[in-house]
């Protein structure tokens, strides 16, 4: 079965992926911080039992201490688990579907973090997926809930819906024009937060940003999703307008074709160099100047990451060999 990021999603010239995460805790157990490893595995077993009965054959459950380090990091590179989740393995279990689009981190911060990941801008669909799984589990396990405070979480900042929805956006034109600071101040006023996805927070690798909802108490899931969607669409429109403008600029055209040359010809390329060139080329693709499919480029954001390349090749590669393998795969994607 193809991984979720190999498929094409809506608005994928700018929107790379959509994630909806819901935190839940099983009633009758202390929160994760107060649990022994045995109790944590007991919770994972309970979840497995419900899934085996209600959704047989759909999920695979793996204790994290049985997952090799490269695969652990690769899972984090692809956004399936958090860096926190792989900081130690004992007591932690990952339950997920074969295409990796729907998963549960067991005993990360809360007992469950139910997570749906889809390519492009697909907020309603991602919410629907995670919400359905939540309801199936809640019916059997019963999650900690309070009428006034909503779903109760280990950290009091997440109570209420305990839902974080986020859209990963590639914003090279806005970044090149120095618009990110203004943008993050604007979205903050609208209850959202904009952070860098990889690398430095305010100047991330490949201009990849994550836009997510901040408020969980006093706003319904639907309203939060709707709010995030409309603001995402507006950011996407701003990015598109600036991309058009940039294409008129000779200096930018030069950068664009040089970046294209790098991707098409490099024999050794680091993930950072790849992402920088790819972000620029994205603009040429969107404007029809360069003929590559957006979904093929977006997929490379996940498959070209260092640990993910190691996993693909079945061993931890020497850096130079890895950079050569990456260059080869990128040239292939550009039809060489």
């Amino acid at each position: 079965m193809s991984k979720w990021y190999l498929l094409s999603g809506a608005e994928n010239d700018v929107a790379i992926s959509t994630k909806v995460a819901i935190a839940r805790n099983v009633k009758g157990y202390n929160f994760t911080v107060k649990l022994t490893p045995d109790e944590k595995y007991e919770i994972a077993d309970k979840i497995d039992d419900v899934l085996d009965e209600k959704l047989p054959g759909k999920f695979v459950s793996t204790p994290m201490n049985e997952v090799g380090r490269d695969l652990q990091i690769s899972l984090a590179e692809r956004g399936i688990v958090s860096p926190e989740f792989i900081s130690f393995a004992e007591g932690r279990t990952l339950i997920m579907t074969e295409d990796e689009s729907l998963s549960i981190m067991v005993c990360e911060e809360d007992h469950l973090k139910i997570q749906a990941l889809l390519p492009g801008l697909e907020l309603e669909k991602a919410y629907e997926l995670s919400n359905t799984l939540d309801s199936v589990l809640d019916e059997e396990l019963e999650f900690a809930f309070d009428k006034k405070l909503g779903y109760l979480t280990q950290c009091p900042t997440n109570i209420g819906t305990a839902m974080r929805a986020s859209v990963t956006l590639q914003l090279p034109a806005l970044a090149m024009r120095g618009q990110i600071g203004r943008l993050s101040a604007t979205v903050a006023k609208l209850g959202l937060v904009l952070t860098g996805a990889y690398g430095e927070a305010d100047n991330p690798v490949g201009s990849l940003f994550q836009l997510s909802n901040q408020v969980t108490l006093g706003i319904s899931e639907q309203a939060a999703i709707e709010n995030l969607k409309s603001i995402s669409l507006s950011v996407i429109e701003q990015e598109r307008a600036l991309r058009k403008e940039l294409m008129e600029n000779l200096k930018f055209q030069d950068i664009l074709w040089r970046s294209y040359g790098t991707l098409k010809n490099a024999r050794v390329i680091s993930f950072g160099e790849f992402m920088e060139a790819m972000a620029v080329v994205k603009i040429g693709v969107a404007e029809g100047e360069i003929k590559v499919k957006n979904e093929n480029l977006n997929e490379l954001i996940f498959t070209m990451q260092p640990a993910t390349l190691n996993v693909e090749n079945g061993r931890s590669l020497d850096r130079q060999i890895r950079d050569a393998k990456r260059a080869e795969a990128v040239r292939e994607a550009f039809g060489e």
Binding site: D138, E139, F145, K148, G150, T157, G160, T161, Q222
Partner: peptide, 23 residues
Amino acid sequence: KLKPSLSRIHGRATHVGKSGVAQ
């Protein structure tokens, strides 16, 4: 007791949205 500091995040809001199955 935590309310005065948490109100910075949550304001005076109470939960709206999905309810637990028991509710």
